[in-house]
Amino acid sequence: MIRVLLADDEAMIRAGVAAILSADPGIEVVAQAEDGRDAVEQVRRTRPDVALLDIRMPHLDGLEAGAEIRRLVPETAVIILTTFGEDAYIARALGDGASGFLLKSGDPRELMAAVRAVAGGAAFLSPKIAQRVIEQLPSDRLARTAAARERITALTDREREVLALVGSGLSNADIAGRLFVVEGTVKAYVSSILSRLDAKNRVQAAIIAYEAGLVTG
């Protein structure tokens, strides 16, 4: 069971996100907080696997709370869930050790996929955020595109298909449903893809998928 702390200063948002997460039998919301300071204290007390934090909260914002959680309880992974996708927020959150960054306007399936990914030691960015990160990467775009396309030549056709779905933010379960295979098969594909691409996690794989043109929009 993946144990989650949820922090947001709006009660209706907390209730909605909690309802989405509760639909997954493998995820349990063990604590909720309405401000960043309380979120840090509850993480210290309950030691959840994942802390899901809004950015704009009183007393301590989600970015500050996330950095403090990573310092005090490094085994708890941090996901930033927010309406705001400004580049400065993204860079700061990831720089402070957050494992995920999601927009509230995203597909609810992204939320569950992100929680599962970061709880397993991986990282997860919503597709829109991944694209923003790519746009901010240094160096020549054409050169990066050419390099990414060269890297994916090491993949089989099926692996490229799976990589495109990873880049679209789909979970292993969603990919299995799309491809009509069991989830274990998808896990094997993803593991092979990461190895062949020399990518550390799904975020890096997603970036390669975007740069190679496997994912658009």
Results as ranks from 00 to 15, higher is better:
residue 1 M to T: 13
residue 4 V to F: 03
residue 7 A to S: 07
residue 8 D to V: 03
residue 14 R to W: 03
residue 15 A to M: 14
residue 20 I to P: 05
residue 21 L to N: 03
residue 26 G to E: 15
residue 27 I to A: 06
residue 31 A to G: 14
residue 33 A to M: 05
residue 38 D to T: 13
residue 38 D to M: 12
residue 40 V to D: 03
residue 47 R to E: 11
residue 49 D to H: 14
residue 49 D to L: 08
residue 53 L to S: 08
residue 58 P to T: 05
residue 60 L to A: 09
residue 64 E to G: 11
residue 66 G to L: 01
residue 67 A to P: 10
residue 67 A to Y: 10
residue 68 E to I: 02
residue 68 E to S: 04
residue 71 R to M: 12
residue 74 P to H: 02
residue 74 P to K: 00
residue 76 T to Y: 02
residue 76 T to F: 03
residue 86 E to N: 10
residue 87 D to I: 14
residue 88 A to P: 05
residue 93 A to I: 02
residue 95 G to C: 04
residue 96 D to G: 08
residue 96 D to M: 07
residue 100 G to M: 01
residue 101 F to M: 00
residue 101 F to H: 00
residue 104 K to A: 00
residue 108 P to A: 00
residue 109 R to P: 01
residue 114 A to H: 00
residue 120 G to P: 11
residue 121 G to C: 09
residue 121 G to E: 09
residue 124 F to H: 12
residue 126 S to R: 11
residue 127 P to V: 07
residue 127 P to F: 07
residue 129 I to E: 06
residue 130 A to H: 00
residue 130 A to P: 01
residue 130 A to V: 01
residue 131 Q to Y: 11
residue 132 R to L: 09
residue 137 L to Q: 08
residue 137 L to Y: 00
residue 138 P to H: 05
residue 139 S to N: 10
residue 143 A to V: 12
residue 144 R to E: 00
residue 144 R to C: 01
residue 149 R to W: 03
residue 150 E to G: 08
residue 157 D to T: 15
residue 157 D to R: 15
residue 159 E to D: 05
residue 159 E to Q: 13
residue 161 E to L: 12
residue 164 A to K: 11
residue 164 A to H: 08
residue 165 L to R: 12
residue 165 L to Q: 10
residue 166 V to M: 02
residue 167 G to Y: 02
residue 168 S to F: 00
residue 177 G to W: 01
residue 180 F to L: 13
residue 180 F to P: 02
residue 180 F to I: 10
residue 185 T to I: 12
residue 187 K to N: 15
residue 193 I to S: 09
residue 193 I to Q: 09
residue 194 L to A: 08
residue 194 L to C: 07
residue 200 K to Q: 15
residue 201 N to M: 08
residue 201 N to H: 15
residue 202 R to A: 13
residue 207 I to Y: 04
residue 208 I to S: 09
residue 211 E to M: 09
residue 211 E to F: 06
residue 212 A to S: 11
residue 214 L to H: 03
residue 215 V to M: 05
residue 215 V to N: 04
